[in-house]
Write a protein that binds this DNA or RNA. Structure first.
Lengths: 138, 138
DNA sequence: ATCGTAAACAGAAAAAATTTTCATTTTATA
DNA sequence: TATAAAATGAAAATTTTTTCTGTTTACGAT
């Protein structure tokens, strides 16, 4: 599913800001903070408020184009491009050195199952590691 | 390992605030936002600032007494009491209705050393569901 | 047990990050 | 085009973190 389809399927409009945000993530190939996205965006759009950036990042997460990094130490929220989309169940693997993102599809957890008597609705996972390139360089 | 030991092992001091925060979580038996903790805490301590609450919640997470809820929708940060401690590898299962917390120890990701060529450093997981009691009531 | 000290803790105020509100503009579609 | 829904920036509000300064805790030496 293409990005534009994904937007319209979620009643989100295709705007220059959104196209540019997606392009930024495609070029950078790593996860970015809201402020980093804003800095890139300001190069293209003079008038460009931070609230709009936050709103767009959230919208893009809602429709599955971006995802939020599970991040407990950083003071800013971090977002990444979801290359798999939400067709397949998967999680993300991130490099703690260079912030590169990789998909991880071998997840053994099934929603709709029961665990400890709980009816599972959904689950989150994230693997943090060091990518092959960074293993060489450090 | 007792809470007091856990604090001193991490060079954290045992203070009335911290004892009370731990007690609040033990009594409430569910996850709480920083502001909810503050509201409970103010009943015991007249002078009690919100920054101190945030600092203590973070400290208690660092030493493994509390943990942070992976929470993408709520506007406030949420914390829960970690009943297992960090002796055993485990994750948490939370009830999306009543906020109750349960531990989940059958994690298959634990033994993974390399995934997609990445050297795995750590990982986060959280299961969201509906607990047995809430299944009856809704 | 009591005192002295250094490290850790705490509140207040300020700063930073994020979200909401509101009025205006842009987009998609008829 | 005309219209309704969605998106936007600016300003304000809210949440979270940091800084600064005074206080408390842990612990060793009396």
């Amino acid at each position: 599913m293409k990005h534009a389809e994904r937007l319209t399927a979620n009643k989100l409009k295709i705007t220059p800001r959104r196209n540019e945000i997606i392009e930024i993530f495609e070029k950078q190939k790593k996860y970015l903070s809201s402020e980093e996205v804003w800095n890139f965006l300001k190069k293209k759009f003079k008038k460009c408020g931070l609230p709009g950036v936050y709103r767009n990042l959230e919208s893009l997460v809602e429709c599955g184009i971006l995802f939020k990094i599970i991040c407990f130490n950083d003071d800013k929220k971090q977002y990444g491009l979801c290359s798999v989309g939400n067709e397949k169940h998967h999680h993300h693997l991130i490099c703690i050195k260079c912030k590169k993102i990789s998909a991880f599809e071998n997840c053994s957890l099934n929603d709709k199952k029961k665990v400890n008597g709980y009816l599972i609705v959904n689950h989150y996972s994230q693997l943090n590691g060091i990518c092959p390139e960074c293993q060489k360089n450090f």
